[in-house]
C-alpha cells in the first residue's frame, strides 16, 4: 500500500536532508512570503540541491503559510521538479518533433542501453541520470541532447560513446586513479 506523498525522496541519504535543511533558511530568505513566490522558490531550491526533498517541501509550506499538500500538489504538477536526487551527470534527450523525425528515440535508447537504466532513472552509483525533455528549441540541429546543461546538436550513437569515454576519464581523475600533468 502506498502512503500519500511518502513515495518521494527515494534514495536520499540522511546527511543530505540534513545539509539541505541547514541551507534552506538562507534561500527562503531571498523571497517574499507570498504565494506568487512559490514556483520561484521551488526553482531556486532545485537549482541549489538538484531536487526537492520532502523536508524542503515542508519548509517551503511553513515559510509561505501554505499547507504541505498545496506545495506538494503544485510541485508535482510541473515537469521541471524532481523528487529524487539525480546523477552527477544529467543527460536530457530532446523529444521535440524535429528530434522525433530525426530519430531522437534511437538516441534515447542508446543512452538507456549504455547505462542500463530507463529515462527518469539514476544509475545506482549516482553518476548518471537520463530524462526526456520537451523541445529545447534547437530543432535545426536535431537530434539534440542536453548533457550537463550543454546543448549537443546532430547527436549520433557514436557521440554517445565519446561522451562516456570523457566522463569516465574525468571520474578516474577525480578518484585519483589517473594523475594529471598538473598534479
Amino acid at each position: 500500500m502506498e502512503v500519500s506523498g511518502q513515495h518521494i525522496g527515494h534514495g536520499i541519504r540522511e546527511e543530505e536532508e540534513q545539509a539541505i535543511s541547514e541551507k534552506l533558511p538562507e534561500i527562503l530568505g531571498e523571497f517574499s512570503r507570498e504565494r506568487s513566490s512559490l514556483l520561484p522558490i521551488l526553482q531556486r531550491i532545485q537549482e541549489a540541491f538538484k531536487f526537492l526533498s520532502p523536508g524542503a517541501i515542508k519548509a517551503v509550506a511553513e515559510y509561505l503559510g501554505l499547507s504541505g499538500s498545496e506545495v506538494y500538489g503544485v510541485a508535482t504538477f510541473y515537469n521541471q521538479f524532481r523528487f529524487h536526487p539525480p546523477g552527477r551527470h544529467e543527460i536530457k534527450i530532446c523529444m521535440g518533433t524535429a528530434c522525433h523525425v530525426k530519430g531522437g528515440d534511437v538516441i534515447l535508447e542508446n543512452f538507456e542501453r549504455r547505462l542500463g537504466i530507463k529515462e527518469g532513472e539514476t544509475t545506482p552509483d549516482r553518476e548518471y541520470s537520463i530524462e526526456r525533455v520537451a523541445c529545447v528549441g534547437c530543432c535545426a540541429l536535431a537530434p539534440v541532447a542536453v548533457v550537463d546543461d550543454k546543448v549537443i546538436g546532430y547527436m549520433q550513437p557514436s557521440k554517445v560513446e565519446g561522451l562516456f569515454l570523457q566522463f569516465e576519464i574525468q571520474r578516474k581523475i577525480r578518484e585519483g586513479q589517473i594523475k594529471t600533468e598538473a598534479s
Binding site: 500519500s4 506523498g5 517541501i57 515542508k58 509550506a61 511553513e62 499547507s67 504541505g68 499538500s69 498545496e70 506545495v71 506538494y72 500538489g73 508535482t76 504538477f77
Partner: peptide
C-alpha cells in the same frame, strides 16, 4: 490537493507535520 497531472492525476494528502 490534486497531485501529479494528466492521466496520473490523483488526490493527495501531504502533511508538513504541523
Amino acid at each position: 490537493t490534486f497531485a501529479k497531472r494528466g492521466i496520473m492525476t490523483m488526490v493527495a494528502y501531504f502533511s508538513s507535520g504541523n
